[in-house]
Design a protein around this nucleic acid. Structure first.
Length: 186
DNA sequence: GGCTAGATGTGA
DNA sequence: CACATCTAGCCT
């Protein structure tokens, strides 16, 4: 079953970030199915979250975060890597969940450990996938059984500029899963 | 384990 | 014009 828009429309981005763990990200890339099981996510919680791209308002880059839920927000980071988020919350409320790592299932072109690597493995790029609706092909998430692994919360990665928001434990991962980008601290 | 170069885009 | 929701590669 493809996850429906209601799945993403929940107001609490952190709940969506947790619920995404274990789900399967699928990209039908010109007929080739590329898929990975999500093992690590990060919540970007709203306009006041100083770690979020939405903190500057609906700029050209972050505009899709302000749109309807269940849409892909893909951006370029450091001039070389692409990162994929899913937009959450009701339309007008800018929030998203960054997909940070997966476990390779089908057709992966590369390692799926780390947000940039995950996009590279599934052939997801800003130019072609940003703004795509995730409730149907070619890019979507499929439901899956609840993960066996425990869900662990940890501070988000590389958001040290965000002041009091930097320490919020809004990174979620499947404890002990070998595909996580980095283990939870202490 | 740690450090850093790498190249674009973005926002101040 | 500083720096980014990173990564690979090289160092110890």
């Amino acid at each position: 079953m493809i996850l429906p828009r209601d799945f993403y429309a929940r107001r609490d981005t952190r709940a969506v970030a947790r619920a995404l763990l274990g789900k399967v990200l699928v990209h039908l890339d010109g007929g080739v199915r590329r898929a990975a099981r999500i093992v690590e996510t990060e919540a970007y919680h709203g306009p006041r979250d100083q770690a979020s791209h939405a903190r500057f308002g609906p700029t050209r880059r972050a505009a899709v975060m302000f749109g309807p839920p269940g849409v892909a927000y893909v951006y370029l980071i450091y001039g070389l890597s692409h990162c994929m988020n899913v937009v959450t919350g009701e339309e007008g409320h800018p929030a998203a969940v960054l997909l940070r790592a997966g476990e390779p299932l089908e057709g992966c072109l590369h390692s799926t450990r780390g947000p940039g690597n995950l996009c590279r493995a599934l052939a997801i790029r800003r130019e072609t996938e940003n703004g795509l609706d995730l409730t149907g092909p070619p890019l979507f998430l499929e439901d899956a059984p609840r993960p066996r692994e425990p869900i662990v919360a940890a501070p988000r990665v590389n958001v040290g500029y965000a002041g009091e928001w930097a320490g919020k434990p809004w990174r979620f991962l499947l404890g002990g899963n070998p595909w996580v980008s980095r283990p939870a601290p202490r």
